[in-house]
Design a protein around this nucleic acid. Structure first.
Length: 889
RNA sequence: GCGCGUAUAGCUCAGCGGUAGAGCACUUCGUUGACAUCGAAGGGGUCCCAAGUUCGAUCCUUGGUACGCGCACCA
C-alpha cells in the first residue's frame, strides 16, 4: 500500500495511467472469451475532438471496459476516414495561404502526394485527443480508408457491384457544387430558406394573339435559367390556357421558339399556373422535359458561369458571366423589352453544399450511381426482423422512412483525393471495370479481339461514404478471410449520432447485407446531440462551442466522461454545463478521500475474499447487500444502454450509501468494538471499495486505477479483477440499518428544527419500545450515539417532561432537552409532523372509503393502503400525545 | 405536406397507473481526525392546458398550446 497524496493530480496521473494501460497491451483483444467488437465511427483525418466525439467515444469506451471486465474478448477497432472533400479543401486552403500554386497547376499526382504528406504530418491529432479522453482503442490495428487493404476492399466491392448491375453510369441531373466543381449526393445538400424574389416574365405568343391573348406570363425565382427554356408548361385542366396548348412562344433575349405544352406538373394554384421548363437546370423540369422530349440546354460550365454555345443559343455577351450576374442582366433586358410583369419578395428554399456553402446547381452530367433501391431491400428486412436493433428503437422509423424512399446514390466525385474509380475506357469509350489495370487490359484485349489498345482510367474518385460503408468488415481484413473477420463479425454495437444514420448506418447495412449476407452490427446505439448549457446547439457562429479538451485540462477526463455518461439518457439531447462537470470532479474527490480514510485506518485492498454469507454484523451484511444490488443495477443499465441510470446508481451508492452512511457507521465499530468485529468491518470496507472501483472504472478509469494501484496489497492486478459480484441479499440486516439511518436522520432533523446546539449531547429514551426498536437501539447503540450525538440510550414506559418527541418505526422516542428546548419551535415541529401524518392518513382513508376502490383495485394495493392507515393513525396518535404533554408544561 | 420528439423544482434533467426524484443553485448551521472539491438540516413543484378511459391519471387515449428536429415541396 502506497500513501495517496492529499489530492488527485489529474494532469500528472492521467497521461501516465493511459501509457501504462497501453503499454500493458490492455487495449488489444485479450483472452478466449466471447468476442465483442465495436468499430469506431472513423473520425475525419482533418478532425479534432469535439464534444460529439467526446460523448460517443466515452460511451463506446464504457461499453468496452465493461465487457472486458466481464471476460469478453473485446476489439475496439480504430481508424480514420480520408474525408474526400473536407481534406482536399483543407489542403487547398493551406496551399493558398502559403501562396503556393493551385492544384491544377501542379497536377493531380503532385497534389495527391501533397495530401498524403499533410496526412502524415497533421492527420494524427485526434488520436492524441482520444487518448487524453481515455479511449481504450486498439491502436495497433489502426486503419485508414485509403490504406492498401481498404482500397482493395473498395475495388472488390465496386467491381462486384458493377458486374451485378448495382453500379452503373448514367446521365441525369445531379447536385453540382460549383465551388468544388464536383457532383455531390442528395445528402450533402442542405436546403435553407432564404429571402429571395419571384419575377414574372411575359413570353409573347409567336403567331400573334389567340382569343385576344398575346402573351403567357411565367413566374421564376431563377431568371437566368430562362435562357435555356425548352417549353412552357400548363396544366391540361387549366382553362385559362387551354387554347394556348400547342402554340409557340418567342423566348425573349435568345429569340427562340418554344412550345406551350400540357403536363400534370404545373399547379394552377401556384404562380401564374404557367411554368417555364428548363430541363438541364431543374429537377422537376428535367422530368417534364423527358416526358415531352424537350431539348435539354446546358447553360453553365463547371464553375456555374454562363456559356454560349451553338447548341444553347445563349447570346455571346453572357459567355463567361457568373450565374448571379447573368440573373441581373436577364432581368434588366426583360424589363427593357417591357416584358417584366412583376416582382415579389418571397422566402425560397435554396440548396447549399454542406461543405462549400455555395448554392448548388442542378447540372446534367455523366456520373456513377449505386442502385440503392435494390440494395435497400435486405437492409430494411434486417432491421424489420430485429436482427439489427436500433436503440432507442424509434430511430428505426427514421431509417425505414429514408430507405423506403431511397434514390440512386451518386458515388462519383470530380475530386482528386479519394479512391479512383476502377474503370478504364477504350478509345471508343468502352468501359472496362476491374480491380487492377492489368485486368482491365486483359478485358480490353478480349473485347477488341486481341488488339492491344490504350486505356485511360476514369478520372473521378468515389464518395467518401462509399469506403466508410465497408468499415465493419473492411477493417477486419475483408476481402481476405481473416481470423478477425471470423471472430468479430458481425460486430456487437455501432454507436453514432442520428445525423449520420443516412450517410453511414444505412449504407453500411446495405453493403454488409450484400457482401457478407449478414448484418454488420447487432445494435445501433444512437446517442443524443450535445448542446451547450442553455440547450442551444453549439456552433462556431454562436461562439458557444465547448472544447472538451478544456474540461479535460481543468478537471480531468474522468469528470467529463462521467458528466457525459450521466446525461446520456434516451430520447433527449443533453446540455453540457461546466457546473455539472465540477460536480463530478467533486465526486471523484469524494472517492479519493474515502480511499484515504481507508488508508488512515490501515485497510488495504486485498483478495481475502469475503463471503458475504459469513458476515456477522448487520452493518456489513447491509453494505454487501447494497453493493450487490448496485452492481446488478449497473449491469442491467449498461446492457440496456442506459448510461445515465448506470452512472446514477454508482454515484448514489458511492457517495450516499458508502461514504455518507457506511463509513460513518463503521467508525464506531472500528473504534470501539472487539477485534473480530473490526477485522470483519475492515474486510467489508475493503471489498466494497473494490466493488466501487471495479464498477466505476468504465466511467472514471483514471482515478479508479490510481486508487487501486496505491491501495493494492497483494490483490490481483486491477485488470484481472472480474466484474462479477456475489448475488447477495440480507433483508433483515438491511431493514435494521435502514431503521437506524431513519432514526438518526429524524433525531438530527428534530435537533436542528428545535435549535438544539450542535455540541449538546442528549439522552435518547425509547418509550414502550417495540421489539424491533429495542433490538435496533441495542445493536446500533454506538452508531446512534455517535451520529446523532446521543449520550445514553434508555428504555422506559413513560415520556419524561420537557423533551422533544419523535416517532420512528412505530416507536416514540424522547430527547430530554430541559433548559435548551425551544418550546415554540418544538410545538411548530410537532404540528408539522402531525399535519403530514394527517394528510397521509386522510388520503389513505379516502381511498379505502371508496367502495369501488376496495372492490376493484388489486388486493395488494388495498392491503397496502390499510397498512398505511394503521401506520399513520398510530403515528398521529403518538404525535398528538407528545404535543399534549408539551402543552401541559 | 409527411415523419419524429419535447413540455416535471430557479436551472439541467430522471421517473412512475397508487407517497413526485437527482445534480446544480438557494437558506440556516458547522474548523468532532477521509473529505470545505466537505458535512448536517431545510425551503422550493396545478408534473403545459382540456376532455376521455380507469376504483385511481403526472403517467394511457384524443384534442389543443408552445418549442425542437428530420425529410419532401414550393415555377
Amino acid at each position: 500500500m502506497r500513501d495517496l497524496p492529499k489530492t488527485f493530480d489529474h494532469n500528472e496521473a492521467e497521461p501516465r495511467l493511459y501509457r501504462e494501460q497501453e503499454e500493458a497491451g490492455l487495449f488489444k483483444p485479450q483472452g478466449e472469451g466471447d468476442p465483442y467488437a465495436i468499430v469506431i465511427p472513423p473520425p475525419n483525418v482533418t478532425g479534432s475532438l469535439h464534444v460529439g466525439h467526446a460523448l460517443n467515444n466515452t460511451l463506446q469506451d464504457i461499453l468496452c471496459r465493461y465487457r472486458r471486465r466481464q471476460g469478453r474478448k473485446v476489439l475496439w477497432q480504430f481508424g480514420v476516414d480520408h474525408a474526400g472533400i473536407a481534406t482536399q479543401m483543407v489542403v487547398e486552403r493551406q496551399m493558398a495561404e502559403r501562396q503556393e500554386p493551385h492544384r491544377r497547376e501542379i497536377g493531380r499526382e503532385a497534389f495527391v502526394e501533397k495530401v498524403w504528406e499533410w496526412k502524415g504530418e497533421s492527420g494524427g491529432m485526434i488520436k492524441d485527443q482520444l487518448k487524453r479522453l481515455g479511449a481504450s482503442l486498439d491502436w495497433s490495428r489502426e486503419r485508414f480508408t485509403m490504406d492498401e487493404g481498404l482500397s482493395a476492399a473498395v475495388r472488390r466491392v465496386f467491381v462486384q457491384m458493377y458486374r451485378d448491375g448495382l453500379i452503373y453510369r448514367d446521365k441525369r441531373l445531379v447536385n453540382w457544387d460549383p465551388k468544388f466543381q464536383t457532383a455531390i449526393s442528395d445528402l450533402e445538400v442542405e436546403n435553407q430558406e432564404v429571402n429571395g424574389k419571384m419575377w414574372n416574365f411575359a413570353y409573347p405568343l409567336a403567331d400573334g394573339p389567340v382569343d385576344g391573348i398575346s402573351e403567357i406570363v411565367i413566374a421564376t425565382t431563377r431568371p437566368e435559367t430562362m435562357l435555356g427554356d425548352g417549353a412552357v408548361a400548363v396544366h391540361p385542366d387549366d382553362e385559362r390556357y387551354t387554347n394556348l396548348i400547342g402554340k409557340k412562344v418567342r423566348l425573349p433575349i435568345v429569340d427562340r421558339l418554344i412550345p406551350i405544352i400540357a403536363d400534370e406538373y404545373p399547379d394552377p394554384e401556384l404562380g401564374t399556373g404557367a411554368v417555364k421548363i428548363t430541363g438541364a437546370h431543374d429537377f422537376n423540369d428535367f422530368e417534364v422535359a423527358k416526358r415531352h422530349n424537350i431539348p435539354l440546354l446546358m447553360l453553365m460550365d463547371a464553375e456555374a458561369r454562363m456559356i454560349s454555345t451553338p447548341d444553347n443559343n445563349v447570346p455571346e455577351r453572357y459567355d463567361g458571366v457568373d450565374r448571379f450576374e447573368a440573373r441581373k442582366m436577364v432581368i434588366a433586358e426583360i424589363e427593357e423589352q417591357g416584358l417584366l410583369r412583376g416582382i415579389e419578395d418571397k422566402l425560397i428554399m435554396q440548396p447549399f453544399g454542406d461543405r462549400s456553402g455555395v448554392v448548388i446547381e442542378p447540372m446534367l452530367t455523366d456520373q456513377w450511381y449505386v442502385d440503392a433501391k435494390t440494395m435497400a431491400g435486405p437492409a430494411i428486412d434486417a432491421v424489420r426482423t430485429g436482427e439489427t436493433k436500433f436503440v432507442p428503437e424509434n430511430w428505426s422509423k427514421t431509417y425505414y422512412n429514408w430507405m423506403e424512399n431511397i434514390e440512386p446514390w451518386c458515388i462519383s466525385r470530380q475530386l482528386w483525393w479519394g479512391h479512383r474509380i476502377p474503370v478504364w475506357y477504350g478509345p471508343d469509350g468502352e468501359a472496362f471495370c476491374a480491380e487492377t489495370e492489368a485486368e482491365a487490359h486483359r478485358l480490353a484485349t478480349e473485347h477488341y479481339d486481341g488488339e492491344a489498345v490504350e486505356l485511360t482510367q476514369d478520372t473521378d474518385v468515389l464518395d467518401t461514404w462509399f469506403s466508410s460503408a465497408l468499415w465493419p468488415f473492411s477493417t477486419l481484413g475483408w476481402p481476405e478471410d481473416t481470423d478477425e473477420l471470423k471472430a468479430f463479425y458481425p460486430t456487437s454495437v455501432l454507436s453514432t449520432a442520428f445525423d449520420i444514420i443516412f450517410f453511414w448506418v444505412a449504407r453500411m447495412m446495405m453493403m454488409a447485407m450484400h457482401f457478407q449476407k449478414e448484418i454488420p452490427f447487432e445494435t445501433v446505439y444512437i446517442h443524443a446531440l450535445v448542446r451547450d448549457e442553455n440547450g442551444q446547439k453549439m456552433s462556431k457562429s454562436k461562439g458557444n462551442v465547448v472544447d472538451p479538451l478544456e474540461y479535460i485540462d481543468e478537471f480531468g477526463a474522468d469528470p467529463l466522461r462521467f458528466t457525459l455518461a450521466s446525461q446520456a439518457t434516451q430520447g433527449r439531447d443533453l446540455s453540457l454545463s461546466k457546473q455539472r462537470v465540477e460536480g463530478y470532479r467533486n465526486f471523484r474527490t469524494k472517492l479519493w478521500n474515502a480511499a484515504r480514510f481507508l488508508q488512515l485506518r490501515e485497510v488495504p485492498l486485498t483478495d481475502e475474499v469475503v463471503d458475504p454469507q459469513t458476515l456477522e454484523l448487520p452493518l456489513n451484511q447491509w453494505i454487501a447487500h447494497e453493493a450487490s444490488a448496485m452492481s446488478f443495477e449497473v449491469s442491467r443499465a449498461l446492457d440496456a444502454f442506459r448510461f445515465d441510470e448506470a452512472a446514477a446508481a454508482i454515484y448514489q451508492f458511492t457517495w450516499r450509501t458508502y461514504c455518507d452512511w457506511y463509513l460513518e457507521l463503521a467508525k464506531p465499530v472500528l473504534d470501539d468494538c472487539d477485534a473480530a468485529a473490526v477485522t470483519e468491518t475492515k474486510a467489508a470496507l475493503s471489498s466494497t471499495l473494490r466493488t466501487i472501483l471495479i464498477t466505476l472504472e468504465p466511467f472514471m478509469p483514471f482515478v479508479c486505477r490510481e486508487v487501486y494501484a496505491a491501495m493494492n496489497d497483494g490483490a490481483l492486478p486491477f485488470d484481472q479483477q472480474s466484474w462479477a459480484v456475489a448475488d447477495f441479499t440480507a433483508p433483515d440486516a438491511a431493514k435494521q440499518i435502514e431503521a437506524a439511518i431513519a432514526l438518526i436522520s429524524e433525531i438530527r432533523s428534530a435537533r436542528t428544527e428545535v435549535n438544539v446546539p450542535v455540541t449538546a449531547k442528549l439522552e435518547l429514551i425509547a418509550i414502550n419500545a417495540t421489539d424491533g426498536a429495542r433490538a435496533l437501539c441495542e445493536a446500533q447503540e454506538p452508531a446512534i450515539k455517535r451520529l446523532a450525538r446521543i449520550e445514553t440510550i434508555k428504555q422506559t414506559d413513560q415520556a419524561p417532561t420537557g423533551s422533544i418527541q419523535i416517532v420512528s418505526g412505530g416507536t416514540t422516542y424522547a430527547l430530554p432537552v430541559v433548559g435548551v428546548i425551544d418550546l415554540d419551535a418544538e410545538l411548530a415541529r410537532l404540528d408539522k409532523e402531525i399535519g403530514t401524518a394527517q394528510g397521509q392518513l386522510k388520503k389513505a382513508q379516502g381511498k379505502l372509503g371508496n367502495e369501488r376502490f376496495v372492490s376493484k383495485a388489486p388486493p395488494e394495493v388495498v392491503a397496502e393502503e390499510r397498512a398505511r392507515v394503521e401506520r399513520f393513525s398510530e403515528e398521529l396518535e403518538q404525535l398528538t400525545v407528545a404535543k399534549a404533554r408539551l402543552e401541559a408544561l
